[in-house]
Design a protein around this nucleic acid. Structure first.
Lengths: 138, 138
DNA sequence: ATCTCTGCAAAAAATTTGCACAAGG
DNA sequence: CCTTGTGCAAATTTTTTGCAGAGAT
């Protein structure tokens, strides 16, 4: 039996009636508070340190569940890999075109305002800025 | 020899010193003024009607070139397929979560404003709205 | 001739699926 | 037991790459 830290994500898994398995626990812990916007591979490597027999398929399944229940969000920045963000509150992202790092950008109020679009029911929005970060623009 | 319509995209290909081949001409024509945000497959099918021997690899190569020279833009909306948009002027997109249709949303001024981010050199931004379109929200 | 571009096929990368078995109520 | 979840492997899907030959100056 492993130590069962009860994180926010773990709680959301429970609330939705999913079982807390060691695998889900580890994926949840790897994501909780994680600001690096990891890919599936990143998370797989991270979790595999502790549970070396876990399979990538389980990571994919778990992540898809977490996205479906709204515990985390998927982030597509154009590198053809899914990134995952445990922060589901309104905020934006900056992607460095040179090093690929994804930074959180606090919402400005203006940008995150959802305009009234007569023919659409808008549920959420997502703004991505592209450019060069401090490390790379020099 | 085919009819060589000189579209904006064709012009940008020329200006960059690339040759205007029948394949590039057809991909350019398929994109010019296209508001449907087609995928590679969409474009392949479209172009293959006229040039049945064209290969998907050529479509990919052409599209990547066009994106690199800034003649068109790549659009990632979360369905794990690249979409392409010949409109490179500032505007946003709405993605219907039910039918997957991508709609153009005119810029509001507010949303497309790029905030001053001290540690970043912002080159462009991209806002995507998610929800249900008129056809699907009923 | 030379340089570029295309088509084919193979490879690579990312993600999903099917199924037998394990785990836990 | 019965349901749910895992791991493995295979299958799918999307995209890239290598190379020989075609085409255009």
């Amino acid at each position: 039996m492993m130590a069962m830290k009860s994180t926010r994500i773990v709680k959301e898994i429970k609330d939705r009636g999913f079982k807390i398995t060691p695998q889900r626990q580890l994926v949840a812990e790897a994501l909780e508070g994680n600001k690096t916007h990891p890919t599936v591979e990143d998370l797989y490597k991270e979790v595999a340190k502790i549970a070396p027999t876990i399979s990538v398929a389980t990571i994919y399944k778990t992540l898809n569940e977490l996205v479906e229940i709204g515990a985390i969000q998927r982030l597509d920045v154009g590198d053809r890999k899914a990134h995952f963000d445990p922060d589901t509150t309104p905020h934006n992202h900056f992607v460095c075109l040179r090093c690929g790092t994804i930074y959180d950008i606090p919402e400005t109020g203006k940008v995150n305002e959802i305009p009234e679009l007569p023919d659409f029911k808008v549920l959420r929005s997502q703004t991505i800025y592209y450019g060069y970060c401090k490390k790379c623009k020099g």
